[in-house]
Design a protein around this nucleic acid. Structure first.
Length: 864
RNA sequence: GGGCCUGUGGCGGAAUGGUAGACGCUGCAGACUUAAAAUCUGUUGUCCGUAUGGACGUGCCGGUUCGAGCCCGGCCAGGCCCACCA
């Protein structure tokens, strides 16, 4: 046994050599095929967590593997550096967000580098630097020109304590996530991007993303929420008992209604308006109970539970709407379940075929008229609940007997003919509101002038930089409290004017950063169009993008939209940002609680004589469920400690072993120790080997066996990595390791086979354990660096064996295994199989009916 | 309510319709050691049996097939996402 492997020293040495040789710096090289590997860039929150380690390890395996395959690999890193945590830090400890952010970046850069990632650090940037966000301001002005950006009044989630807008995802059970205060709905002037103009392209081009997980495509498709239906007019007539004067003004007007089920038109028994529908107010204002009704609607929570339990309530306006075909009059209600921001904010109710309408009709005693009858109508009834299945139209005049599809078309045609309505497509997707009342974001380059309105900041005055001196003493947006920053002359008339004090939503930064890496130092443009076209051509984006599934809709949809918008403005050529997407699972860990139920760190819990106790107090500790690592449950592991104790290679190996990357990974002490032992064992075993010069022409059977294993492993590992089955790649490599380390060479042919095996092994562990691989490569007599070494190729001819061992089944049950010549025919197989004692025993007293032989696979003896 | 995914040993997980449990973790036994760690060897699905061996076994029920963890139908359980979306 040779000396123990000095992990710390070796790993540091090789990272130094890679940096010195600039091994991972790349440029556009048209003689090579490019490969762009990108992991979702980190938010600099302070220190890296295990989720980062998993993310960047996965990406690094792909990057190093593709590099060895001869691709021109770009693998960059940067910082998604704007965001609320920096402001919170400023509020809590009086530190400037910029200082806090840059310090975190410095810490995390060192941590990431200690993982031995094959990153081209020369392309690094932070999105909070004006050199980055100035391009966002330029692009925004271009978007404004093109009509992609616009300003409108919209309803937002307003936190009354923080005095700021909250994104939908920051509203938890109707309350602000930070303050816990009930969120108000406010009308505010907001800058928005017209993502809805791209709804159809965003939906249809999902089909081209065949290297995306099906799950993510479905989520985006649902989010875009395309529906095809009919929008048509219903006339309003005054009820006989209408008394209020204002009411009669509404009679004779009409209401636009949208439906995806025009086929059920003849089953309509009421109309319902959203409480905030403009006509609702006109019809009901001043009526008894209306104010109370509105209050009741508003008091309903927005949480899942609240909606589940919320009763369907309605307010009868007393008005009637005229059925556009039948001429029949139906009552107009205002109902709490109708949403203003979907469709037209008005629906017609078909209780027989919609459960929600059914609930409502039952409560208010409205008719339930079935108009779609299933084929098997034996005990068909819509008494108890709505029928939403397939069927044939009935009670519907000219639609009777039609299928649902035909009836939909017929009703749309009829309305279009009479010019009372039209077939239309609706999307659930809303335009992207990008204004945030926050400091730590990219300033929106607009100046408001009393005379000239909203004036874009002239190109020459960009960037609009954040003022460095800022106070977080008052709640709300520090930019609007700033004494001088916002006061500027109007660029058009030179009169006193004021800057926009809102900043961009921080999803803005991550929507285009993959382009910036292509040319991260460009001062004129977001990116150089030609360079970007090399790395991100029209028909292909980032070759492999890796990140958490939590961004399935938000970031991944915004980035797709942004790419198309940038394309349409002439900045880039690509249609889609990410060609291949992989969504990794979470990292989980056991949870621990002390006797008071307080969560404690894994490092504070220790097993003693079969019981778990607190490492300091010795008091009993309860082991809880295995859940996602989170600071609040304290079930976190600090990667820095792991990297220091076990080294980067062990951490990388452990993270890739066992769990398939798309699934959750449970972090265990025994797992990381096992990986660490393997690193040391492999070093010891290989450095202790007697590697002599070999001779390929002297080939013993056992040399052939080893070479077969070597070449099968080369094939298998490559396929596993391509398929993102890193756990299988690790398993194959360990199996291979077990094979060649137990091999005892006896002649020159054996030595040839062993040398080949060791060399292949060292090259193949490079993507997983790059430091160990370099060390072993050097110690086994190579002068070049392993990072520049090509991936081994395999020889199919060496993979075939003279004999095969297969199972023998009797009536489908395995009774024996036999070894046959590889080219054995059925007759030979039958002879050998039937000669087996255990086969004969199983066949005893029965007649042979059939003999099935699948060469190389199985023998099945059918008896009866 | 809608959509998607997953059910295999003590655990993580392998398995183009063809010898279920590769590989690893844990456990057990042994070698080495004054001892421990590391390392090495063997063993580790359950049940019956001293043993050759046998029975059972991939959530449950059925189907297709010479043959099903895998394909089809119906259940059960767990998880994730979306959701009064007309």
């Amino acid at each position: 046994m040779s000396e123990r492997y000095n992990i710390r020293e070796s790993e540091q040495k090789w990272r130094g050599k890679w940096a010195e040789a600039e091994s991972f710096a790349v440029s556009e090289d048209t003689t090579k095929e490019k490969y762009y590997v990108l992991e979702m860039f980190p938010y600099p929150s302070g220190r890296i967590h295990v989720g980062h380690v998993r993310n960047y390890t996965l990406g690094d395996v792909v990057a190093r593997y593709k590099r060895a395959q001869g691709f021109n690999v770009m693998h960059p890193m940067g910082w998604d550096a704007f965001g609320l945590p920096a402001e919170n830090a400023a509020i809590e400890r009086g530190e400037h967000p910029a200082k806090w952010t840059h310090e975190n970046i410095d810490t995390m850069r060192v941590q990431l580098k200690s993982m031995g990632l094959s990153i081209d650090w020369s392309r690094e940037f932070a999105t909070c630097d004006p050199e980055y966000y100035v391009h966002e301001q330029r692009m925004f002005l271009k978007f404004l020109d093109k009509g992609i950006a616009y300003r409108k009044e919209s309803i937002v989630n307003w936190d009354p304590v923080d005095n700021t807008v909250l994104a939908n995802e920051q509203v938890i059970d109707g309350c602000g996530w930070r303050t816990g205060a009930p969120v108000e709905r406010r009308r505010l002037n907001q800058w928005s991007l017209k993502i809805t103009d791209y709804a159809e392209e965003l939906l249809s081009s999902l089909d081209t993303l065949d290297r995306w997980p099906e799950k993510v495509r479905i989520m985006q498709s649902n989010w875009i929420g395309k529906s095809v239906g009919l929008q048509f007019k219903w006339d309003i007539v005054a009820s006989k008992d209408a008394t209020a004067a204002s009411a009669d003004n509404s009679a004779g007007k009409s209401i636009e209604v949208y439906t995806t089920r025009p086929d059920t038109l003849f089953g309509a028994s009421f109309m319902a308006l959203a409480p905030d529908h403009p006509t609702a107010k006109a019809l009901a204002e001043g009526k008894d109970g209306f104010d109370d009704f509105i209050k009741q609607c508003q008091s309903t929570g927005t949480s899942e539970a609240a909606i589940e339990k919320a009763e369907k309530i309605g307010f009868d306006t007393g008005y009637k709407a005229v059925h556009p075909v039948l001429g029949r009059e139906v009552p107009i209600y205002i109902a709490n379940f109708v949403l203003m921001d979907y469709g037209t904010g008005a629906v017609f109710g078909v209780p027989a075929h919609d459960q929600r309408d059914h609930d409502f009709a039952t409560k208010y005693n409205l008719p339930i008229l079935p108009v779609v009858i299933p084929e098997d109508a034996a005990d068909f009834s819509v008494e108890a609940e709505a029928y939403t299945g397939e069927g044939v139209l009935a009670n519907s005049q000219f639609l009777d007997g039609m299928s649902i599809t035909d009836a939909k078309a017929a009703v749309i045609a009829k309305c279009e003919e009479g010019d009372t309505g039209f077939g239309t497509t609706q999307y659930r997707l809303r335009d992207w509101g990008i204004s945030r009342q926050r400091y730590w974001g990219c300033p929106i380059p607009i100046i408001y002038c009393d005379d000239c309105g909203a004036v874009p900041v002239p190109e020459a005055d960009l960037p609009v930089s954040l003022p460095p001196e800022v106070s977080f003493d008052k709640p709300g947006n520090p930019l609007s409290h700033h004494p001088t920053w916002k006061n500027v002359p109007c660029p058009t008339c030179n009169k006193d004017a004021q800057r926009e004090t809102d900043t961009f939503d921080t999803f803005f930064e991550s929507s285009w950063y993959q382009f910036r890496y292509c040319d991260s130092k460009n001062t004129e443009l977001p990116t150089d169009k030609d360079k970007a076209a090399y790395w991100l051509p029209k028909d292909g984006g980032v070759d492999q993008y890796i990140g958490g599934v939590e961004h399935a809709v938000l970031h991944l949809l915004y980035a797709r939209f942004f790419t198309k918008a940038m394309r349409d403005c002439g900045f880039v050529v690509s249609d889609e940002p990410f060609d291949g997407l992989f969504t990794q699972g979470m990292v989980t860990h056991e949870t621990y609680q002390d006797e008071n139920g307080k969560w404690i760190l894994p490092t504070d819990a220790i097993e003693k004589d079969g019981n778990w106790v607190h490492v300091e107090t010795g008091k009993p500790v309860t082991i809880g469920p295995i859940i996602k690592m989170s600071k609040s449950k304290k079930n976190v592991i600090d990667p820095e400690e792991i990297l220091e104790t076990y080294g980067a290679d062990a951490a990388r190996l452990f993270i890739l072993s066992d769990s398939p990357p798309e699934r959750d990974l449970e972090w265990t002490e025994s797992g990381i120790e096992g990986a660490w032992r393997f690193v040391n064992r492999a070093y010891g075993a290989i450095t202790a080997m007697d590697l002599q010069a070999g001779d390929e022409s002297v080939a013993s059977d056992k040399a052939k066996d080893l070479r077969r294993l070597t070449h099968q492993t080369i094939k298998g590992v490559g396929e596993a990595i391509e398929a993102f089955a890193m756990n299988k790649a690790v398993a194959l490599l360990r199996e291979f390791y077990n094979g060649f380390t137990s091999f005892k060479p006896a002649n020159a042919g054996d030595h040839f086979a062993l040398n080949e095996a060791v060399e292949a092994f060292v090259v193949m562990i490079n993507p997983i354990m790059p430091h160990l691989a370099e060390e072993l490569w050097a110690l086994t007599g190579h002068d070049n660096m392993l990072v520049d070494q090509a991936w081994p190729s395999y020889d199919e001819a060496l993979m075939v064996s003279d004999t095969v061992t297969i199972g023998v089944q009797v009536n489908g049950k395995v009774r024996a295994t036999i070894t046959l010549p590889a080219n054995a025919d059925q007759k030979q197989a039958e002879e050998i199989a039937l000669a087996e004692e255990s086969v004969q025993r199983a066949m005893e007293g029965k007649t042979l009916r059939k003999f099935i032989f699948v060469p190389g696979r199985i023998v099945n003896v059918v008896v009866g």
